[in-house]
Amino acid sequence: MSMQMSDHGRSLLTQWEGYRNQAYDDGVGVLTIGVGHALTPTEKSSGALDINGTPVPYAGGISDDQVQALLAYDLRKYEGALNDAIATDLTQNQFDALVSFCFNIGVNGFQSSSALSDVNNNNLNAVPDDLRKWEKAGGVYNQGLANRRENEIKLWLGQI
């Protein structure tokens, strides 16, 4: 069965990623807009986002509806990666936590993570510690990432 991120998960992800109608530098030099959408080289050069195959100029900002459409479009990639990679039944909270994690570290990071290995080996109790291994940015401990991992762990455990 193919899972999707719940509305609850999307709300938490939006809190953790932040929500911006205007493009901004994410703090490490990545031009970002909406809910954590890193602009692609094509989007940067064209001045338009690709939302479901439609070019949407972003220089003057994008509407709330466009932010939500862009998030839904972006989430499909991460939900698909999880649905393809995970061979174990998960609760909705567990799936949502892993979508948030994958959204943050990327599909390649997720596919090579001990979290995925432990999930597929049904070692679900190890996943919180697996997530804590991803608290660095550029090789340096990052409190913001540590906070995010703890929130993802709370979601994984059904505590939020």
Rank of each mutant, 00 (worst) to 15 (best):
G138F: 07
S114Q: 11
V127L: 09
T54G: 05
G80P: 10
G47H: 02
A81C: 10
Y73T: 10
C102Y: 03
N120G: 07
N120M: 11
D84C: 01
S113V: 03
T88A: 11
L75W: 06
D65C: 09
G61Q: 08
L70V: 03
D96K: 02
D26W: 09
G47W: 04
G36F: 00
A137W: 03
P41D: 13
D118I: 02
P57M: 06
L39R: 09
D25Q: 09
Q66W: 14
Q66I: 12
L82S: 00
I86C: 10
D89F: 15
D26T: 04
S114C: 12
E152M: 04
L39S: 12
T54I: 07
V107T: 13
F101Q: 06
A126Q: 09
N83K: 08
A72I: 03
G53R: 06
K77E: 13
S46L: 15
Y78A: 03
G29N: 15
G144I: 07
A81S: 05
S117N: 08
A48S: 10
R148E: 03
S63I: 14
R149W: 03
L98W: 02
P57H: 10
V67W: 04
F95S: 03
A72W: 00
D129G: 11
N125A: 15
L31T: 14
N120W: 04
T91D: 05
Y73W: 12
R132G: 05
N123P: 01
K44C: 08
L71N: 01
S46D: 11
Q143R: 07
R76F: 00
Y24V: 07
P128Q: 04
L49Y: 06
Q68D: 10
L31Q: 09
A87S: 12
D25G: 11
Y141P: 07
L98P: 00
T42Y: 10
F95R: 08
N121G: 13
K77N: 15
P128E: 03
N104W: 05
Y78S: 02
V107Q: 06
I51A: 07
N104R: 14
A146N: 11
I86D: 01
S100D: 12
A97Q: 14
S117G: 15
E135G: 09
D96Q: 15
A137F: 00
L31S: 06
I105Q: 13
R76Q: 08
A126H: 09
L82P: 00
G106T: 11
